[in-house]
């Protein structure tokens, strides 16, 4: 995605990689190369010094992985679980704030 907001990163800190699934548009987070999860808690945490290369690698195989719009998301440095620094990415990670049933966690529970 070319949205400038997706490329705001501090020199220090860490990020995770995200994308939308091609078939249903749903948000996923990279767990490992070729492995993606709807839950940000599963995401691989990457130092910002290495994130651009990791994004490029993931973007190169996005069609094969059934993804679209690969980019990196900076996370808070002082949280136990990966938590994006911006409210936009927190909503992407944890779902719309106005429909508790539509959050990734609720969906996971519903399908458990």
């Amino acid at each position: 995605m070319s949205d400038v907001r997706n490329n705001r990163r501090e020199a220090g800190g860490s990020s995770v990689i995200t994308a939308n699934r091609l078939l249903d548009g749903r948000i996923v987070w990279q767990v490992a190369e070729g492995d993606w999860s709807p839950m940000i808690k599963d995401a691989r945490i990457i130092p910002n010094a290495e994130i651009e290369a990791a994004i490029a690698q993931a973007a190169a195989r996005q069609q094969a992985d059934g993804l679209v719009g690969v980019y990196g998301v900076q996370i808070e440095s002082d949280e136990a679980a990966p938590t994006p620094v911006t409210v936009r990415e927190r909503i992407r990670a944890f779902g719309p704030t106005v429909h508790p049933d539509f959050t990734p966690a609720a969906e996971l529970e519903a399908h458990a």
Binding site: N20, D24, G25, R26, I27, V68, R88, R92, G95, F102
Partner: peptide, 12 residues
């Protein structure tokens, strides 16, 4: 887009 289909924050 010409068929009204956007990719939004969580889904199409």
């Amino acid at each position: 887009l010409m068929n009204g289909l956007y990719l939004q924050l969580h889904a199409y």
